[in-house]
Simulated assay, not measured.
Amino acid sequence: MSSTLEVQEARTATPSGSSGRPSRPARQRIPLPRRRSLPPVSRALAGGLGALAAMLLGFGLQLGVVGAVQHDRDQEVAYDDFRGALALALAPVGQADYEGKLLQPGAAVAILEIPRLGLREVVGEGTTSEVLQSGPGHRRDTVLPGQAGTSVVFGRRAGYGGPFSGIAGLRIGDAIRTTTGQGEATFRVLGVRRAGDPVLAPLAPGAGRLTLVTADGDAFFPQGALRVDAELTSAAFPAPAKVVTAADLGASEQPLAGDSKAWVPLVLWGEGLLLAAVGFVWARARWGRWQAWIAGGPALVALALPVADCTSRLLPNLL
């Protein structure tokens, strides 16, 4: 009897909530440690590493995906413009335009077609890295394709669409066609030349030749220049008097040369990218990782692409 009363008293003494169930003890809040801010030196280092990572990412995209899209877009625009110039008889037939002014770098001068490779490219004036980003380029001190003399055309091996990636596989006798302001010309491939191979004999008076030049070796790792020579099989067009000679060409127009003029825009865009990377590190410390990526990621990519574009112009033009 006494044990029953003790149990009832113990139940009565147990605190309960409004529902009659025993109440749970209140949870204690444990304060979270405050996020430590990086010292200035670490912030600068993190910003520099972020800028470098964004530049490398943009460089890879520029040479691969973005560069190929840019090349295709430039080719479409140049093809439409050159067709219009042909229809209006305004296409250039020499080193100067119809007003007598020297052609601007990148101005369309010919259409190059190689049936075996399924290639059709608009050829621009000049052989700098910037010109070759849009397609093959005509060496300014040589005649236009189809004219009496030797015409030289440069093209990239791998970057920006790699229009000349397959010319090493051309065989003797393969056909090449070009269209200029003077009409269509046809060529027959004579062979492929690499560094150390014997050069061709000088042209006979009134004869024509086309030489295509690109990088030799693995993609993005050039090991000299590769040349494909083709002889003109159609009647040669007359060539106007030369205004530009080999002595007038800059160092950036030679095979496997970079464009030193890209340094100034590279420094300016690089400063902007570095500032954006520092701002990204600050935002990540204040806002959080995902918030910083959402706000600063597009800005880093937008700045990294022009930095990569300028960097690619410093690399060999036949890359």
Results as ranks from 00 to 15, higher is better:
residue 13 A to P: 04
residue 78 A to F: 05
residue 294 I to P: 05
residue 217 G to S: 03
residue 133 Q to E: 13
residue 216 D to N: 10
residue 229 D to C: 06
residue 24 R to A: 09
residue 55 M to F: 15
residue 300 L to N: 05
residue 186 T to A: 14
residue 240 P to R: 02
residue 43 R to H: 00
residue 54 A to D: 06
residue 253 E to K: 07
residue 286 R to T: 15
residue 131 V to D: 08
residue 68 A to C: 02
residue 62 Q to F: 12
residue 144 L to H: 04
residue 73 R to V: 15
residue 50 G to A: 11
residue 160 Y to T: 01
residue 289 R to M: 11
residue 90 L to R: 15
residue 197 D to S: 08
residue 115 P to E: 00
residue 227 R to N: 07
residue 120 R to T: 07
residue 120 R to D: 06
residue 247 A to T: 07
residue 179 T to D: 06
residue 275 L to E: 08
residue 171 R to G: 09
residue 128 T to M: 06
residue 196 G to Y: 10
residue 117 L to I: 00
residue 88 L to C: 05
residue 168 A to S: 09
residue 175 A to R: 10
residue 4 T to E: 14
residue 278 V to P: 00
residue 104 Q to E: 15
residue 265 P to L: 03
residue 188 R to Q: 11
residue 136 P to V: 00
residue 319 L to F: 15
residue 139 R to P: 03
residue 256 L to N: 10
residue 96 A to G: 05
residue 79 Y to Q: 15
residue 239 A to Y: 08
residue 64 G to E: 09
residue 217 G to E: 02
residue 57 L to D: 07
residue 286 R to N: 12
residue 164 F to H: 01
residue 130 E to A: 15
residue 134 S to V: 00
residue 209 R to G: 06
residue 243 V to R: 10
residue 246 A to E: 14
residue 173 G to D: 05
residue 7 V to K: 12
residue 157 R to L: 12
residue 319 L to P: 11
residue 109 V to C: 02
residue 34 R to Q: 12
residue 127 T to W: 12
residue 34 R to W: 12
residue 251 A to Q: 14
residue 5 L to F: 10
residue 165 S to K: 09
residue 263 W to C: 08
residue 68 A to R: 14
residue 311 T to E: 04
residue 147 Q to K: 04
residue 76 E to V: 12
residue 214 T to W: 11
residue 131 V to G: 06
residue 169 G to C: 04
residue 124 G to H: 02
residue 288 G to C: 05
residue 115 P to C: 01
residue 129 S to M: 02
residue 162 G to S: 03
residue 150 T to K: 01
residue 151 S to W: 04
residue 174 D to W: 09
residue 316 P to S: 05
residue 282 W to Y: 13
residue 126 G to A: 01
residue 80 D to I: 10
residue 164 F to Y: 08
residue 251 A to G: 13
residue 260 S to P: 13
residue 167 I to F: 04
residue 40 P to N: 02
residue 60 G to C: 06
residue 103 L to I: 01
residue 104 Q to C: 04
residue 93 V to Y: 07
residue 112 L to H: 04
residue 291 Q to P: 03
residue 299 A to W: 10
